[in-house]
Amino acid sequence: MVQTQVPTAASPAVTAIAPPPGRRAGSRDRRRAGALPYALLAPATIVVLAIIGWPLVQLVILSFQEFGRAQAFGQPAEWVGLDNYVGVLTDPVFWEVLGRTVGFAAVCVVVTMVLGTLIALLMQRLPTPFRILVSVGLLLAWSMPALTATIVWGWIVDTEYGVLNQLLRDGLGLAQFDRHSWLIEPMSFMGVAVVIIVWGAIPFVAFTVFAGLTQVPDEQLEAAALDGAGPVQRFTAIVLPQVAPILVIATILQIIWDLRVFTQIFALQDIGGIRGETSTLGVYIYQTAIAGGEFGEGGALAIITMAAISVASIALVRRMLRADS
């Protein structure tokens, strides 16, 4: 981000890369330089392909095979065509899980983005000491591993000894929260999961948006204020268009992360609740493939999930690009 002073310039990067004017000598230079970067990039590309591409190819192959535990231990795997996909798509449990996952992710993404942006706006206006305090707090939440966070949140909402029930019961005198189970009702379970995930995701959004906000020139805001624009108008007319690309990227990342959420749900299911009524796609794939030993069917599930996530992200990117132009 060197070209911060020209926020509206369409192609600063392109002009920087464009070759210097000149004819014969210039084109020979370009050709020589053209081969070298590719040669230098090749090893890294091969490593990336080997690490990311190869498992992906394996996954696709797996999803067309009858592959169980016996096959993992060396028996030949049988090709079954689209059987795994048909099996998954005709299973009502899958559609139930998919619907739950999409709804759950939507709530998580919206709440995370709204709260994250509000905190970023707050940070922009705070005096430095308090901004540092908020930043440190956000960083601590961010650096907490998801599993640890879930276990600690599990203690907070614990039925017998949880501090939440104790506060509601002893602090506010609400007797119905004595031994109240926060996880047994699916909606309540998902609510707790939303809190844990949003809590963990806000720091990323807040920091990213905050970084974007610092790029909005004060002069424009000042000028708008002089012209009589209120705070809401200034935000929607000046700030929002300039940080929109950042918001889109953050939103896409949140969608991807929230659609494939695993750790928080999986750990929370061990603490309480009913597994059959609270599984999301990530956990369902784990139950089918890893715990249940149906690797082929799990592979099909994973490919379908990947397709769903891609569709959601690509649609968003395209809409954003259209709006931009």
């Binding site: 609740g273 597994r275 059959g276 715990a291």
Partner: peptide, 21 residues
């Protein structure tokens, strides 16, 4: 051979939680 899968799917846990409920 598949009993471990029944346990892993949490079917017995879900059953007894629902009974307790």
């Amino acid at each position: 051979p598949r009993w471990a899968d029944v346990e892993a799917a949490g079917i017995m846990q879900d059953l007894f939680v629902s009974i307790a409920q």
